[in-house]
Amino acid sequence: MTDTRTISVTVNGSRHDLEIETRLTLADFLRHQISLTGTHVGCEHGVCGACTVLVDGQAVRSCLMLAVQADGAMVTTVESMTGENEQLHPLQQAFHDNHGLQCGFCTPGILMTLLEFLQHNPSPNETEVREALSGSLCRCTGYQKIVAAALDAASRLRQDVGKTAGRRES
C-alpha cells in the first residue's frame, strides 16, 4: 500500500511540486527529496530539536510534521539565512564569534528556534534565552556559549533594526 499525494511547498522562496508518500516526514522531505540537508535529524520523536524549521514563520519540529501537511506552506530552513554575497546573518555571525557551536549538528535547529524567538522577544534576558533553548539538546557545548551567542545576536539585531529605522527617518 503506497499512499501518495502531490504537494506544493515553498521552501526558502523556491516552489517545489512533488509527488510524495503521505507518511513522509517534513524532515525527510527537506533532506532527502529536495536535498536541503542543513536540517538535521537527531531523535525523530520530537525531543532533541535538531530538525527545527520555520513553517509559515513558526518554529516547529519537522520530524513531527508530515510533508503533506506542509502543502501550500512556506518553509524556511537554515540554508536561507545567509544574505547577499553569502554574508552570515547576524545570528550566525554571533554564533561564530562566541564559539556557540562545536560539532554543529544541533546548530541549525537552534538557529531556527532563535530566529523566531528573537522576533517575538528582541530584548531577552538570559533566563528567557535559556527557556527558549530548553527544547534543543546539545551534547557538546554545555549551552553556555550558545546562550552568549543568542544574547549577542539579540543585541546585534536590535542595532540593525535601529540602523534601518534611522535610515528611514533620514
Binding site: 500500500m1 499512499d3 499525494r5 507518511r23 516526514t25 525523530e44 520523536h45 508530515l66
Partner: peptide
C-alpha cells in the same frame, strides 16, 4: 524510526 504506512486524509 519511520512511520508505518497509512492512508492520509485531510
Amino acid at each position: 524510526m519511520k512511520p508505518p504506512p497509512f492512508h492520509y486524509h485531510d
